Amino acid sequence: TIEDAIKKLLKLAQKGQPYTFGDFTVTSEEEAKKLAKWLKKQL
């Protein structure tokens, strides 16, 4: 689910690992949080 993807994304971001989700490449926890907010709006 999208919720699971968001959780995984935040965990990876906390470890400092870049994470690619579709067109987004997230390289920081701050970016992960922005992406998570955006994804929730898409639901």
Rank of each mutant, 00 (worst) to 15 (best):
T1D: 08
K11V: 10
F24H: 03
Q17A: 09
L35I: 04
K8S: 05
K37S: 09
K15Y: 10
I2K: 01
P18Q: 07
T27G: 05
K11E: 13
E29W: 14
L10E: 01
D23T: 12
E29L: 14
K7I: 09
D23I: 15
L43M: 09
K11C: 14
T20I: 10
K37T: 10
F24T: 02
K7R: 11
L43Q: 04
A5V: 14
K34H: 06
D4N: 10
Q42M: 13
K11Q: 12
K34R: 08
Q14I: 13
Y19Q: 05
P18S: 07
Q42P: 01
Q42F: 13
T20Q: 08
D4W: 14
E29Y: 14
G16H: 06
K40H: 13
G16N: 06
T25F: 13
K40E: 07
D23L: 15
A13D: 02
K8C: 15
Q14A: 14
T1H: 05
T27D: 05
K8V: 12
K15T: 11
G22P: 05
F21E: 02
D23F: 15
T27M: 07
Q42L: 12
Q42N: 04
K8Q: 10
V26F: 06
L43C: 09
F24G: 01
K41Y: 12
K7N: 08
A36M: 12
T27H: 03
L43N: 03
G22I: 13
A32L: 10
T20C: 15
T20D: 10
Q42V: 13
G16Y: 14
Q14L: 14
T20S: 06
A36L: 14
K8R: 08
D23W: 15
K40R: 12
E31H: 06
K7S: 07
K33L: 13
L12S: 06
K11W: 14
K8G: 03
D4C: 15
Q42R: 12
E31N: 05
T25C: 10
L35W: 06
T20A: 06
T25E: 05
E3M: 14
D4T: 07
E30F: 12
T20P: 11
T25R: 04
A32F: 09
W38T: 01
L9N: 00
K33A: 08
P18M: 08
K41D: 10
K40W: 15
P18L: 11
F21M: 04
A5I: 15
A13E: 01
T20V: 10
K34G: 03
Y19K: 02
L12P: 01
E3A: 10
L35E: 00
Q42W: 12
L39K: 00
K33E: 07
L9Q: 00
D4E: 11
L39Y: 02
L43F: 07
D23R: 05
L9S: 01
S28C: 14
D23K: 10
T27I: 11
L39N: 00
V26G: 02
L35H: 00
Q14P: 04
T25W: 09
K7D: 07
E30V: 09
L35S: 00
Q14T: 09
